[in-house]
């Protein structure tokens, strides 16, 4: 297993007085897939969002402890969340394409980060991202059509393309398949496999099968605590904590 990309130590997250994430320690490997599972409201999304400081946008939210990316504390006052988020991208539960053309959706990140030197450069980046997101063939003839006009599964792949167009080192995915049918889900899982060859992927999912299929490591959260973290195979075949076992056998949920 390769060295850890992100590590969290003593991470606590509060919304006002609500203690949503409690003292979590976790290491996320590079070039691998880590799954977060657990019952609804246990703090998976909250913890995921603290990995690229998306929680900064919520006024009441407060994060304690340290989270490092390549050994550097991302909550250091010198760190600009803008720089961080360019390296740690995010895909959300509900597809959220911008009200722009398909091309402009994908080109958005590269443009703001000044990644393309020329128009053709930009076109290459966009095409490349759309190809990796396995949606190129479906949209290559209508790059100027609005992104909001695509089907749900296509929209989610567009959002993934948009996220990987900026070449993040880590991609955080919060239930990316919850709005999709089995075929689209399958396509996205393939895509995750493919992405993990180059970058680390963290995925929140409610589907145990999906966690088992795509991830190498799994973290099980319960009521804000990280109950168990380890190799996916171990967690699913031989959980050490009774709460994990109840959850994966369907007794908590």
């Amino acid at each position: 297993m390769s060295a850890s990309k992100i590590s969290a130590r003593g991470c606590n997250v509060f919304y006002g007085d609500t203690h949503a994430v409690k003292d979590v320690n976790v290491d996320i490997g590079s070039k691998s897939v880590t799954a977060f599972i657990g019952p609804s409201g246990c703090g998976k999304s909250t913890f995921l969002r603290s990995l690229n400081r998306m929680n900064d946008t919520i006024d009441s939210c407060r994060v304690e402890g340290t989270i490092t990316l390549d050994g550097e504390n991302i909550y250091d006052p010198r760190v600009d969340p803008v720089t961080l988020r360019a390296r740690v991208g995010m895909v959300f539960q509900k597809p959220n394409p911008f009200p722009k053309s398909i091309f402009d959706n994908v080109a958005y990140g590269p443009k703001i980060h000044g990644m393309a030197k020329s128009k053709s450069d930009l076109r290459d980046i966009v095409e490349n991202a759309l190809r990796r997101a396995a949606i190129w063939d479906e949209v290559k003839d209508r790059l100027d059509a609005p992104g909001t006009g695509l089907s749900g599964g296509q929209q989610q792949r567009l959002c993934i393309a948009r996220a990987i167009a900026t070449h993040p080192e880590v991609l955080l995915m919060d239930e990316p398949c919850s709005a999709l049918d089995p075929i689209a889900t399958f396509q996205i899982e393939e895509l995750i496999d493919d992405l993990a060859k180059n970058i680390s992927v963290v995925i929140v999912t409610h589907s145990m099968q999906q966690a088992a299929r795509v991830s190498q490591k799994t973290a099980f959260f319960h009521l804000g605590e990280l109950v168990e973290f380890g190799d996916t195979d171990d967690i699913f075949t031989n959980p050490s904590d009774p709460r994990t076992e109840s959850y994966i056998t369907g007794r908590i949920g």
Partner: peptide
């Protein structure tokens, strides 16, 4: 692909 191993603090 642009290699990006620059520091967060840079």
């Amino acid at each position: 692909m642009t290699p990006r191993s620059r520091s967060l603090f840079a």
